[in-house]
């Protein structure tokens, strides 16, 4: 059963890709981009709270001591933005 449903899923996603390519369906990722955290390095005190509270382990310390998020792992939950003591993190659309 599992293989059958996964086959169906691939068929659906192939169809959807084709429809998006033809311009008949608008893809979600084109309509709304998820917001990602952006650090203001002038305000950031490097307290590591954002690193502590990230559930997805997306935030890591960079070589300069500041923090940055891995855009592939980040699920845009916004916990880092909410918990930042200094208000250094803002959620923005990132290219």
């Amino acid at each position: 059963m599992a293989t059958k449903s996964s086959k169906q899923m691939t068929a659906v996603s192939k169809l959807l890709d084709q429809l998006i390519k033809d311009g008949k369906v608008e893809s979600f990722s084109a309509v709304e981009k998820p917001l990602k955290p952006v650090w203001d390095k002038l305000v950031c005190a490097r307290c590591a709270l954002c690193y502590l509270y990230c559930p997805d382990a997306a935030i890591s310390r960079q070589a300069d001591g500041y923090f940055d998020a891995d855009q592939d792992l980040c699920k845009s939950c916004g916990i880092c933005h909410r918990e930042c003591w200094f208000g250094a993190i803002s959620m923005q659309e990132v290219e």
Partner: peptide
């Protein structure tokens, strides 16, 4: 490591 299947903002994952 990141990339697990938990919901965004999951307390269990944290």
């Amino acid at each position: 490591p990141g990339g697990h299947n938990a919901c965004a903002g999951s307390g269990t994952a944290l």
